[in-house]
Amino acid sequence: MNDPKNGMTLIVKTVTRVTVWLIVLYGIYLILHGHLTPGGGFGGGVILALAFLNIMLAYGRDATQKWLNIKFLEDIEAVSATLFLFMGILGIALGGRFLMNFLPKGTPHALFSAGTIPILNILIGIKVAMSLFLVVWVLAGLHEEEGGKK
């Protein structure tokens, strides 16, 4: 992990190790409160992706690849997109229209309220985080493999 050849200096690595969890926490906070405050799935997802990118920048792409299962991230991305679509189709099944808000709305300003919106926010957050991270990941690795396709 602390291989001096890969990535940046020890200071950056140490600071990253401390702060990356705070960034992840902030991203999760934004996603969960998407229906109450500014932010939401996209903003929180971008911050989550930045946390991952932070690791990649600090430790180098090769070192990150060793303990991060990229294929698994790709699968999570596809699953979250599929689940989003299923929520839309569930809306047809239970409410009669695509993306119908079929759950009880609850009281305004409570964390568990607004029906399906928090669920959709979480799914979008995961999708955005994974795709944004993977886009940068693939672009960073594009110069290494010759001839393949993104």
Binding site: G91, G95, G96, R97, F98, L99, M100
Partner: peptide, 10 residues
């Protein structure tokens, strides 16, 4: 020949 309108999420 009819025009159908579908409102997303009502």
């Amino acid at each position: 020949g009819e025009t159908l309108v579908y409102e997303m999420g009502f």
